[in-house]
């Protein structure tokens, strides 16, 4: 087969079919591959434990974790912890998101707020939010306030950054179009800027829900009686690895559920893409 990419070879003859050179760089989703991979890992893990290759006191097999999960669900303990966590997650994430989207829009659209807003966000965003938990406990008490504040604070900054980037990405020409047709400022915001920034805002939600779950667990490990984080900590203190991993599985499922819900939301709102 001739090498069509060798122009450096002087004066050589060339003959034969032109080779196809545009292979690759087009990854496709293989249906079922994701589930098969996860099931394969779980099967290997179970097989390793059954064969005695994995020390089950440190890493219990999937069957034991499933059993623990079932018992937790049947006794109602799982729902008590999960309910408390979901409540904190919903309140903290919503608070951080609403404030973050509002400031993101302000930063994206206002010359007055752009520089000061981004300066504050840039200064505060890199602070590990977990380090602020003790401060929030001093400010808001050991109860729900400090936990919700930790989540909201952690969600707020990436939301501001994503929303401002989304607003920046909306073509100014579309906004000029709105102005040239005499649309009100509110109509331009609601019908042009918001839908235009929505892809960036929604992709930011994927990041912020992940951050919220991480911060939720961290916050619940300090001074909480209920919540998946508190449950995982208690199980760890008791060397109860079955329940500890059951709690982690619940967190993983929670993450998957949130990602699925966001996927559905994107499909519903961004069908035009």
């Amino acid at each position: 087969m001739p090498d069509v990419n060798s122009p450096g070879t002087p004066g050589h003859d060339i003959a034969g079919p032109v080779p196809f050179r545009a292979r690759g760089f087009t990854p496709r989703t293989v249906p079922g591959a994701a589930l098969a991979t996860l099931l394969g890992i779980v099967a290997l893990w179970q097989a390793g434990a059954s064969a005695g290759l994995i020390a089950t006191q440190f890493l219990p097999p999937p069957a034991s974790i499933l059993r623990a999960l079932y018992q937790l669900a049947a006794s109602g303990e799982l729902w008590r912890h999960l309910g408390a966590s979901l409540q904190r997650l919903a309140v903290g994430w919503t608070l951080g998101t609403v404030c973050g989207v509002a400031l993101g829009f302000a930063v994206g659209l206002s010359s007055w707020l752009r520089s000061p807003g981004m300066a504050v966000v840039s200064a505060l965003f890199p602070i590990p939010k977990i380090a602020l938990v003790p401060l929030f406990i001093i400010w808001f008490g050991i109860g729900e306030g400090s936990k919700v504040a930790t989540l909201a604070f952690g969600v707020f900054f990436p939301t501001v950054i994503n929303t401002a980037a989304g607003v920046d990405a909306v073509s100014r020409n579309l906004m000029r179009m709105g102005q040239a047709f005499g649309l009100s400022r509110a109509a331009i915001l609601c019908k042009i800027v918001l839908p235009g920034a929505l892809p960036a805002i929604l992709s930011g939600f994927r990041v912020t829900t992940g951050i919220a779950i991480i911060l939720l667990v961290a916050a619940e490990m300090i001074g909480a009686e209920r919540g998946i984080g508190a449950f995982v900590l208690q199980a760890g203190n008791l060397y109860d690895t079955d329940n500890l991993l059951a709690g982690i599985v619940v967190l993983s499922l929670l993450g998957l559920l949130v990602a699925w819900a966001l996927g559905q939301l994107e499909r519903a709102l961004l069908g035009w893409r």
Partner: peptide, 28 residues
Amino acid sequence: NPLTPVFQDFALLPWRSVAGNVSLVLEG
């Protein structure tokens, strides 16, 4: 809208249908 533009790059909202783009300037 007395002075009305037609843009070189069309300036259509990709998240609105053809009818939605036209309707945009009549809404309200």
